[in-house]
Amino acid sequence: MLARPEAGTLTIYFDGAAVKARPGDSVAAALVAAGIVATRTTPVRGTARGPFCMMGACFDCLAVVDGRGGVQTCLTQVRDGMRIETQHGARDLHDHD
């Protein structure tokens, strides 16, 4: 579907699975390029959602990034070793995240 000019040199993890990414990629771009199009489920009906606007407006690409929920993955740059998890339903706030 999407052709990439070169393989990424960084590794991020989505729900535990390794995903290659390039420096400067947004998390959303890296995930979509790897064929991952759903990053969360909706709070009410549990429907899958994923990156849509890619510019910070739609809030559909939220995920849990390094333990912090409600992160807009399209506005977050990848970092080697970053751990991204599907956000299931409404975000759970923690005292020290």
Partner: peptide, 21 residues
């Protein structure tokens, strides 16, 4: 706010949580 996991079971003056979070 964004939708959040349930924390407020009752509505309060100036602070409440909808069923959707």
């Amino acid at each position: 706010t964004e939708r959040l996991a349930p924390m407020l079971p009752l509505p309060a003056s100036a602070l409440r949580q909808t069923a959707e979070g």
